[in-house]
């Protein structure tokens, strides 16, 4: 797959990493564009989270490269890497994390790179408005249901208008109804923002929503035919 013009693209080549005293993990080469989200599957412990952290720059690979829109993340120094992540990558976790002392609205604005942005994101305005109507914006995150929390954390991950969205088991703690709502929100917003979306999961409920799959257990890259 070649990236078209104005589509963001992530390219991974020859990536490998080893935790101290453990076996080396080798990751397949791949290229993901913003028009085609990628699902990463695999048994727990096969390195899904490690892979995401290597893509986000939270971990430094022992070799290989991660290139987002022409920028090689693996060669950045730590400070530049933090800045690059803050400006270009949105992360969503299995358990939504928040600054507990801050309200939902303040949590949406914790990114240090928001003040540099020209205008509020039109793509997110409706979502924020929706939270506001449900009276959630001024609550503390701990007061929200887990479905609400995950929706808020998705919107927060998008606040910096990322080129790459990395979601680690975003639905595993949710019931069916919330799962569907969250995955729909994630895919729709990624498309609106023209961002590359990569979801790590072993949640079967997501598989029917996403065409591209990478199974890290056997290193196979599949494109499933949607019904």
């Amino acid at each position: 797959m070649k990236s078209e013009m104005n589509h963001s693209a992530l390219r991974v080549e020859g990536l490998f990493f080893a935790y101290p005293g453990e076996e080396q993990l080798n990751f397949p080469d791949l290229e993901v564009t913003s028009d085609n989200p990628l699902l990463i599957l695999g048994d727990s412990g096969c390195g899904k989270t490690t892979f995401l952290h290597l893509l986000s720059g939270l971990l430094n690979p022992d070799g290989g490269s991660v290139v987002l829109d022409g920028k090689n993340i693996s060669t950045l120094n730590p400070a530049a890497c933090d800045r690059f992540r803050g400006q270009n990558i949105g992360m969503i976790f299995q358990q939504p994390h928040f600054i507990e002392a801050l309200t939902v609205y303040e949590n949406l604005r914790i990114s240090p790179y928001l003040s540099h942005m020209k205008q509020p994101l039109s793509a997110l305005e409706s979502s924020i408005q929706e939270l506001n109507l449900s009276g959630l914006l001024n609550k503390l995150p701990s007061r929200l249901s887990s479905g609400e929390q995950q929706r808020v954390s998705i919107i927060r991950a998008l606040m910096n208008r990322p080129k790459l969205i990395l979601a680690d088991e975003p639905t595993s703690a949710l019931d069916n109804k919330n799962c569907a709502a969250v995955i729909e929100l994630l895919i729709r917003k990624a498309r609106q923002l023209n961002a590359v979306l990569i979801i790590c999961t072993h949640d079967e409920r997501i598989r029917k929503e996403v065409e591209n799959e990478l199974d890290l257990s056997d290193m196979t890259l599949n494109v499933t035919e949607k019904p």
């Binding site: 939270l58 730590p78 933090d82 992360m91 994390h97 928040f98 600054i99 914790i110 990114s111």
Partner: peptide
């Protein structure tokens, strides 16, 4: 976790 979150959103 909140400190890790701050790192994830780009704080050094």
């Amino acid at each position: 976790y909140e400190l890790a979150l701050l790192r994830a959103v780009g704080y050094r």
